[in-house]
Design a binder for these strands. Structure first.
Lengths: 135, 135, 135, 135
DNA sequence: GTGGTCTAGACCACT
DNA sequence: GTGGTCTAGACCACT
């Protein structure tokens, strides 16, 4: 079961945070096709967000083809975003877990880690771009 | 010089994206105390965002003590968020760069990588929490 | 309920005037934790200021930790600035009320009174400074 | 000689602060007809404000008939705002000085004192208004 | 030329 | 209905 955490004050709309967190769970394989999302009522209880806000997020994901809202039954995952390589037991994941532990132990904050990763991704993408241009 | 990229479809307000990207540059040491941010006009030219939106972002960072807006002169970094361990030549960074390359080569998208890192951070934090509770 | 009065000829930005008047009400205890500020619309109706200007003021106070903007609900005081000694029934206040009446009756304008008080404050502060230096 | 103190960050334009502080000195009798204001150069040295900003303030006061700019000579007070009752040795002033000392000693901040005075002035004015209406 | 305030107005997020 | 973002555009403050 996904557990949503809404960071009010981040400036990111609540419904966007719900969508992002759901997609993340889909990519990680935490959430699979057929799985049920928490009910609006449950999300409300956990996050103090208004039910309409949850429904807005769920509706957005339905339009994106990720979930299906079944009246009276709940909301269910209809498409996987899971990647081979992102599974629980993948080597890549184990390596990252180890690296993260080292980074945090070295004093880097969550935001520092995220900044580093974003920078690494940007660097990689730029490099690929220039290779493509060379070709 | 920072270069802002605004993703208009992300649902994240433009001014928040500017703040986030600036903070990231501060954490990475790309931007240092005394450095000048691009002028509102320059950002407008590069991102097609309205000048008011840029100023809103800059003002927010000023109130957070990160930069100083000097009328007639420009906007300047007043506080560093740089971390030892996040420098260009740090081992942690080199390791992450290598890992990212492998992840991307293995077919993981940018969003997959970010999802993995977020998961790893969550896992680490949860573990620390439970250790603290044990203690 | 606070009632804002915007003096358009003063050269002081309208949003600053709103912040100042709110803080004054907080210091006086007129406004307490949990109290609701007038909605942007109400302020607009009363002052002919643009809603954006009101929101700018409210946002500034939110960042200062004084109030909380709750979408769909309103804006609420989250921190007190009240001082013992500034209450309605404090002797200090009674004395000042009496003094003010005498000053006004003696022909001093509002601005004169404010000038006198500012001078008295400056004099007191300077004296304290020099005492500290002596010590 | 007036000494200007510019509070950047107060949100009040620098030139307005200069005008306000000058008027205060005029009301207090600290500055009298014929007195010379500090030169732009001196103000710049003391406040790190741009000379044009000082000149802007002086020009505004010239238009208000308070001072006269004499090229090559300086800026001179041409009108008094002094009030009987606001002199250095007036009883009102002595009483206020004493009251201020007590207020500060009781823990009230500068801003608290100013808030109290403003409230007292408002209260007095409201009372007068209602008396006038009765009459 | 650089930042800063303000307005009117459109559209969105949230209750 | 309440706050929130964004735009275009006018005009101001400051260097």
């Amino acid at each position: 079961m996904v557990e949503y955490r809404i960071d009010r004050g981040s400036g990111v709309p609540a419904y966007v945070q719900i969508v992002e967190q759901t997609e993340r769970a889909l990519r990680m394989g935490t959430l699979r096709v057929g799985d049920k999302l928490p009910t609006a009522r449950e999300v409300v209880a956990a996050t103090a967000v208004n039910p309409n806000t949850v429904l807005r997020a769920y509706r957005d994901m339905e339009q994106a083809g990720l979930v299906e809202l079944r009246r009276g039954l709940g909301t269910f995952v209809t498409r996987s975003l899971a990647r081979p390589g992102a599974e629980d037991d993948s080597p890549l994941r184990a390596e990252l877990t180890a690296w993260t532990a080292r980074a945090r132990a070295a004093g880097l904050e969550r935001a520092d880690v995220l900044a580093l990763v974003t920078a690494a991704l940007d660097a990689y993408d730029n490099e690929q771009h220039s290779k493509e241009e060379d070709a």
